[in-house]
Design a protein around this nucleic acid. Structure first.
Lengths: 237, 237
DNA sequence: GAGTGGTCTAGACCACGGT
DNA sequence: CCGTGGTCTAGACCACTCG
């Protein structure tokens, strides 16, 4: 046991991964604390911390003060999705982008929308629907409600040529939000807009964004047949 | 300009975000280097580094040696998805888990599968299909090909009671992979297994995993109607 | 070539949370 | 209480890459 020294946090990360794979530290094991590992690896504690923190962010380790660091029991694949602005999503494929506003009006939202946006059901909100095109072919339908309490400036926009999608990202910042992915059957209207048949499977993305304690907007993106999202996954156990 | 001091990396992160939102540093701006910011904020450079690195991981900043740090031009929402083992996905909802193997055989794979798995089209691979149930109701169809060169031990398994999904995660580690989400129309066979009608929209997840330079397995998960994936998104511009 | 981020160190203090 | 991870510091060297 001469104890080779690992002086880069990447090397330490690899060594920890090796021990997990080799079942030296099976799932559930509490591994030595940072100070001991630093001693064993012949490096500073901060270096060990860097390596272990990265593994914890990947979901491979679970860390708690005083309780120590343990190998996660249920390995999960953690994927990070980049969700770009729609224009970019299209132009990055080397295709031309087109935009067509369908409607824009200040309306009393349906009860469910009002509830999701946390606004008074008796007050108005801005509704915008639009079609985004890729090379003259319909790509995605955007159906959006905007909370006018949070984004009053939106009322002055007609979104005729600039999509609400892009206007919002450069105008109303948001702090957090949630995203939901589903498969749904195209309604008659959606089918017509997307040049497909009613009932055809469409990929639906629903996004709700918040600025601190206030909701900003609820968007439903309805992608035509053949659409897919791809991403890479990291390095779990 | 007394220059208040920010001594936590979170505080620095917030301040940088504030300047981006306030258009002090509009998209595309090259912001001051770490040393200067450390001076301004009255903290160590490592602390500034921690804050900026975190923002770069979120996609808000782009950093390159010598070129410096700039505010990202195209703000993207970066979402991290946790993809658990199927059993866990069901039991976490407080429902009971059921498993039913449909088939398991060593076969000559279709050309496209062989190509995706990077195996000789003339050699065999292990094919397993199974149904995962939630509370006695069909939840997802698993259709999987396993590369026997990478995972020869799989040939000895019959996957009668233990799903390939779970056997693999505890037996064959993987270093990376890719994942794809789509909406598709249920085939006749899928519809029958999922107790729905042919052509109904199903949510499809395709996963390909690698161990270093070798492919491990290609899985197609076909989720029944009503299934959705939800996650949170961070704090972009 | 030189400026910038990337990283490591040795030491210190703090905050959380099991015992 | 007191051990563990979380973080900060001041300084140093390195690696990448733009000009």
């Amino acid at each position: 046991m001469t104890g080779l020294t690992f002086n880069s946090w990447q090397a330490i990360q690899d060594e920890v991964m090796r021990r997990i794979h080799a079942r030296v530290w099976p799932p559930g094991t509490v591994i030595p604390n940072e100070a001991d590992l630093a001693l064993e690896f012949g490096c500073a504690r901060a270096t060990v911390n860097r390596a272990l923190r990265a593994l914890a962010e990947m979901g491979i380790l679970e860390r708690r003060r005083k309780a120590g660091t343990r190998v996660a029991l249920h390995p999960v694949s953690r994927a990070t999705l980049d969700i770009p602005v729609i224009r970019q999503e299209i132009t990055e494929r080397g295709q031309s982008y087109g935009y067509q506003r369908l409607s824009c009006a200040i309306l009393r939202p349906p009860a469910e929308i009002a509830r999701t946006l946390w606004i008074n059901p008796a007050s108005d909100a801005l509704h915008v629907s639009a079609l985004h095109l890729s090379e003259t072919r319909p790509f995605v339908i955007e159906d959006r409600w905007i909370n006018l309490t949070t984004a009053p400036a939106a009322a002055a926009q007609d979104f005729e040529t600039l999509s609400a999608n892009e206007w919002l990202v450069v105008t109303i910042p948001y702090t957090h939000g949630s995203i939901r992915f589903t498969a749904a059957a195209a309604t008659a209207q959606e089918a017509e807009l997307l040049c497909t048949t009613p009932g055809a499977p469409v990929f639906v993305v629903e996004r709700l964004t918040w600025d601190h304690e206030r909701t900003v907007t609820l968007a439903r993106l309805c992608y035509g047949p053949g659409y897919s999202i791809t991403t890479g996954i990291g390095t779990p156990s």
